[in-house]
C-alpha cells in the first residue's frame, strides 16, 4: 500500500489526497505533527526526508518528496488519463503548470502560513507575488474559455489542474481574495464539482450539488 506522510492543513499534502481520491487510489495516511509539534523537522523525520518537508510518499523502495512528482506517479499508475494529452505542446504546457504551482506555493501558500500559523516573513511581498501569479492564471484560463476550454491543458482535467488548485482555492486564508479573478473562480468550481472530489479545511462542500432534503 502507498503511504502518505500527511498534514491536514498542508496545501501540498492535500494535492496528493485529492489526486488519490479522484483516481480511486487508496493511501495509508501517517499524520505528522507539523504544527505545533514541528515533527517534520525532527531527526527521525530527516531519515525519511532530509529536506524536512511534507508530503512524503512511500511505495516500497520509492520515496518521493516533491508533490508534483507524486502527482505524476499516481497518474502513471492509474491509466495515464490524468497526465494530459501527450502531444509535444500539451506535454510542455503540463510541465509549465507543474512548475507554476511552485510559484503559487511560494506566494499564496506562504501568505496563508503567515496569516494562519504565524509564519514570519514579508506578507506584503507574498501577497503581491500571489496576485501576480493569479493574474497570469486568470489570463491563461480566460484564453482557454474563449477557445471553449475549461481546464488548463486539453479537454479533461489533468495533474496540471490538481497541482495548481489547492493554493489558489485556499488563497483567501492568506488574505488574497479571488473576487478579481472570475475565470479562476469558475475553474475552481469545476474542480470542486468533479466526481469523488474531496475537500480540505478552508474549501467548503458545494452543497448545491445535492438536492435540498425533503422538509418533513
Amino acid at each position: 500500500m502507498i503511504r502518505l506522510y500527511d498534514y491536514v492543513l498542508s496545501a501540498s499534502c492535500y494535492k496528493i489526497r485529492l489526486m488519490a481520491a479522484l483516481l480511486c487510489v487508496k493511501l495509508e495516511h501517517e499524520a505528522v505533527d507539523f504544527h505545533p509539534g514541528r515533527a517534520h523537522k525532527s531527526a527521525a523525520f530527516a531519515q525519511l526526508n532530509p529536506a524536512g518537508t511534507l508530503p512524503v510518499l512511500v511505495d516500497g523502495d520509492l520515496i518521493l518528496t516533491e508533490s508534483t512528482a507524486m502527482l505524476v506517479y499516481l497518474a502513471q499508475l492509474s491509466g495515464r488519463d490524468w497526465l494530459g494529452p501527450c502531444d509535444p505542446k500539451s506535454a510542455a504546457q503540463v510541465q509549465h503548470w507543474l512548475a507554476f504551482s511552485g510559484r503559487l506555493a511560494a506566494s499564496l501558500g506562504m501568505a496563508r502560513l503567515h496569516d494562519m500559523l504565524l509564519y514570519e516573513g514579508d506578507i506584503d511581498a507574498w501577497r503581491a507575488q500571489g496576485h501576480a501569479a493569479l493574474r497570469e492564471l486568470e489570463a491563461a484560463l480566460s484564453e482557454r474559455r474563449f477557445a471553449g476550454g475549461v481546464w488548463l491543458v486539453g479537454d479533461a482535467p489533468s495533474i496540471a489542474d490538481i497541482a495548481c488548485f489547492p493554493n489558489v482555492a485556499l488563497s483567501q486564508d492568506g488574505g488574497v481574495s479571488l473576487d478579481a479573478y472570475p475565470s479562476v473562480r469558475l475553474w475552481t468550481r469545476a474542480i470542486r464539482a468533479l466526481d469523488r472530489f474531496v475537500e480540505m479545511p478552508g474549501i467548503h462542500r458545494l452543497h448545491e450539488l445535492r438536492p435540498a432534503p425533503e422538509v418533513a
Partner: peptide, 27 residues
C-alpha cells in the same frame, strides 16, 4: 456571496438559512 444556490433559492453557507426570490427567509 459564499452561499449556495439550490433551485430558485440562495442559502447561507454558515447555517443553511434559505432565502427565496423575494429575499425572504423560506427555511
Amino acid at each position: 456571496s459564499h452561499g449556495f444556490v439550490r433551485g430558485e433559492t440562495l442559502a447561507c453557507i454558515y447555517h443553511g438559512w434559505v432565502y427565496g426570490a423575494d429575499g425572504g427567509c423560506k427555511h
